[in-house]
C-alpha cells in the first residue's frame, strides 16, 4: 500500500490494503498446500486466474515485482510464499522495495 501515510516509507496493512490486496493475498496463502504449489509451478497464469487477479496484479506477480505487489495490497507474510516456490532470498525482496541492489541493501540498511 501507499508509503505516504503517517509513518514515512512505511505502509500500514490496514482496511485499504486488505481490500486492495485480498485476492493477491488469498492466492499466495493457498500456496501453503502442496497441490497448489504444484499448480502454480505447472501453469502460473492459470493458477493466478483461479483467484481472479486483475491484469496489473497478475503482471506484478509474474514479474516478481515485490515493491509493486506490496503497493497493490500484498502483505509480505503472504506473498513470501511465492518466494518459497521460486526461491528468492528475503534480503533481495527487501532490497527491491528499498530500490537498492542486495549488496547495497546489506551494507546500508543491515550494516553488514
Amino acid at each position: 500500500m501507499s508509503d505516504t501515510g503517517k509513518i514515512a516509507q512505511t505502509p500500514l496493512f490496514d482496511r485499504k490494503a486488505n481490500i486492495r490486496g485480498y485476492k493477491l493475498n488469498k492466492m499466495a496463502m493457498a500456496l501453503v498446500e502442496e497441490h497448489n504449489r504444484q499448480a502454480f509451478k505447472d501453469n502460473e497464469e492459470a493458477y493466478l486466474d483461479r483467484f481472479g487477479l486483475d491484469a496489473v496484479t497478475k503482471a506484478a506477480v509474474m514479474s516478481r515485482d515485490w515493491h509493486e505487489m506490496v503497493r497493490l495490497g500484498g502483505n509480505l507474510f503472504f506473498i513470501l510464499k511465492i518466494s518459497a516456490i521460486d526461491p528468492t532470498p528475503i534480503i533481495s525482496i527487501g532490497a527491491a522495495q528499498a530500490g537498492m541492489t542486495p549488496e547495497d541493501f546489506i551494507k546500508n540498511r543491515l550494516g553488514k
Binding site: 508509503d3 516509507q9 512505511t10 505502509p11 506490496v70 509480505l76 525482496i93 527487501g94 528499498a98 540498511r109
Partner: peptide
C-alpha cells in the same frame, strides 16, 4: 521492517 521503501530498517 519487511515492507515498503523503509524495508531493512533497524
Amino acid at each position: 521492517q519487511l515492507q515498503g521503501t523503509r524495508a531493512g530498517f533497524l
